[in-house]
């Protein structure tokens, strides 16, 4: 277990270094530099930017340095936690990302829990009531659930929520709690605003996991130990939940590796539509403004989130399934 952890952690570091390399190439990909935007900003304010000034700025920010030098400059600072400055917002990237990334993590986790809590019972029901009307309805619903783009679902649910239920959408806190210190009331208030985005983010994964769960349970139900359990005279409920479902759960944990990217992507796009103060809106804003240091740091953080999530998934799998050896 310890060797496995050390190896995985080492591999994780290597992966993250490579991701940062890819990310950095992406920073440099758009034509022109962030400085151009800055100079334009100065000119728009009516400042006289002479070519000498431009040259001075270029030298100061190292715009014409070779790529490896720039990467080193960025990466060596990033390691100690300084991700540079947002050109567009004139703030350190750290401050901008700090609180937002936690909301993103929280929402993705909540959406995952929601997906599991719905997918497992629905999948079990669907598999045990195979080829009945409810099963068909569930099947069609899960196809549509995978097919509907998250942003669309967000718009529709937002429409329903604000039209029929009068829920305030697009915020995480009610007005009276917005600037208040953390308290139980504020937490409850947060939760009452979170359910809508969590459902939207989780729908795609829920549909997918329901399908996985149904297929797995059907596979397991055909196996002999289930037959044995039945022939021992165990009740159907015990056979299904204690014998079959337990073993059908493993692929669900394995599917986590495929679910996490969807959850994180979903969180980004849903928070843009609902205008939530998480990573999404700022990320896309940064991309559109070519504020690349900010954007790429977001991408890096989201990737790290994914890598860590996958590690946790592997460990969880080893924990529930003794056949999986961690070596």
């Amino acid at each position: 277990m310890v060797t496995f952890l050390i190896r995985r952690l080492l591999f994780m570091v290597v992966t993250i270094v490579f991701i940062s390399l890819i990310s950095f190439v992406l920073i440099e990909l758009p034509p022109g530099s962030a400085l151009d935007a800055k100079i334009q900003q100065f000119r728009a304010r009516g400042l006289n930017v002479t070519s000498d000034v431009v040259k001075g700025l270029e030298e100061r920010y190292g715009v014409n340095d070779p790529l490896y030098k720039k990467y080193w400059k960025w990466a060596s600072n990033a390691v100690v936690g300084d991700f540079g400055q947002s050109f567009f917002l004139d703030q350190p990237v750290n401050t901008l990302i700090g609180s937002r990334i936690w909301f993103s993590i929280g929402m993705s986790t909540a959406a995952l829990l929601f997906a599991w809590c719905v997918a497992i019972p629905v999948g079990v029901y669907s598999a045990t009531h195979r080829n009945t009307m409810p099963d068909y309805v569930i099947t069609v619903l899960q196809f549509v659930g995978v097919a509907i783009p998250e942003f669309l679902l967000a718009i529709v649910l937002m429409f329903i929520a604000s039209w029929y239920f009068g829920v305030e959408v697009g915020v995480l806190f009610s007005r009276e709690y917005r600037d208040a210190p953390w308290s139980l009331g504020k937490l409850m208030d947060l939760l009452s605003h979170l359910w809508l985005p969590v459902i939207v983010i989780g729908t795609h994964s829920t549909s997918w996991l329901t399908r996985v769960m149904r297929a797995n349970l059907l596979d397991v139900m055909g196996q002999q130990y289930v037959q044995t359990a039945r022939s021992k005279g165990l009740g159907e409920r015990v056979v299904i939940w204690k014998h079959a479902v337990r073993n059908a759960l493993h692929p669900l944990i394995m599917a986590l590796g495929g679910t996490l990217p969807a959850l994180i992507s979903g969180e980004v796009i849903v928070s843009i539509v609902l205008n939530l103060p998480t990573t999404g809106p700022l990320y896309v804003q940064a991309l559109i403004n070519k504020d690349m240091y900010l954007a790429i740091t977001f991408l890096l953080f989201l990737s790290v989130l994914l890598v860590v999530g996958n590690l946790l998934a592997d460990m969880a799998l080893a924990w529930v399934d003794p056949r999986v050896r961690l070596e």
Binding site: I19, I22, P261, S265, L287, L302
Partner: peptide, 12 residues
């Protein structure tokens, strides 16, 4: 695969 799809697409 360890980069989230949509944000990666968006960045490129």
């Amino acid at each position: 695969q360890s980069m989230p799809t949509l944000p990666l697409w968006a960045a490129i």
